[in-house]
């Protein structure tokens, strides 16, 4: 089994690509819709909206590397720490014994890059701990590790 360590681990830097592609698709759709409105109906505001959306998206994309760097997790002795966010920071501590299941999901872009998302599910819906952008083998190993840790520290509901 993998060693329990006290260091913060980062997700793969390649995850930036996944986020950027997602942002770009969103940007293209919304800017395209606004431009269609502008060219078909000659609505001036639609052009401004398109520009605003594009600027906001580009700023978001520029910040993406920092946002991805802010996604960190740490396996402590008895619980998993997870934190993310630069503007809205959030840090969660989940005892291993509370784990109900671990879910690994892969989107199309992430799969092309060999990445996967790992979701840690407890009995509380609000826990919402999803570690995105893990390399596939890392995600599998982390899953097995978490399951093993949860087994040894099983608690009631």
């Amino acid at each position: 089994m993998h060693e329990i360590d006290a260091d913060w681990r980062r997700v793969s830097p390649k995850y930036v690509v996944v986020e950027v592609v997602g942002s770009l698709i969103g940007m293209v759709v919304f800017v395209g819709a606004a431009l269609v409105v502008f060219f078909l109906w000659q609505q001036q505001w639609a052009l401004w909206a398109a520009i605003a959306i594009a600027v906001a998206s580009i700023i978001g994309i520029a910040l993406e590397p920092r946002r991805v760097r802010s996604i960190q997790y740490r396996l402590r002795e008895d619980d998993l720490l997870f934190r993310r966010g630069i503007m809205f920071q959030r840090q969660v501590a989940v005892p291993y014994g509370r784990m109900q299941l671990v879910d690994i999901t892969r989107g199309p872009v992430a799969r092309a890059l060999g990445l996967a998302d790992l979701k840690f599910v407890t009995a509380a819906a609000a826990t919402a701990v999803t570690v995105p952008g893990l390399p596939m083998e890392e995600a599998d190993r982390l899953r097995d590790e978490l399951v093993a840790l949860a087994e040894t520290r099983r608690a009631g509901l």
């Binding site: 503007m87 809205f88 920071q89 501590a93 509370r98 009995a123 609000a126």
Partner: peptide, 16 residues
């Protein structure tokens, strides 16, 4: 606390 599932601390821009 024996039945707490997890705990989260959050800081928004105004909070900070």
């Amino acid at each position: 606390l024996a039945r707490m599932q997890s705990v989260a601390v959050s800081v928004g821009p105004v909070d900070r």
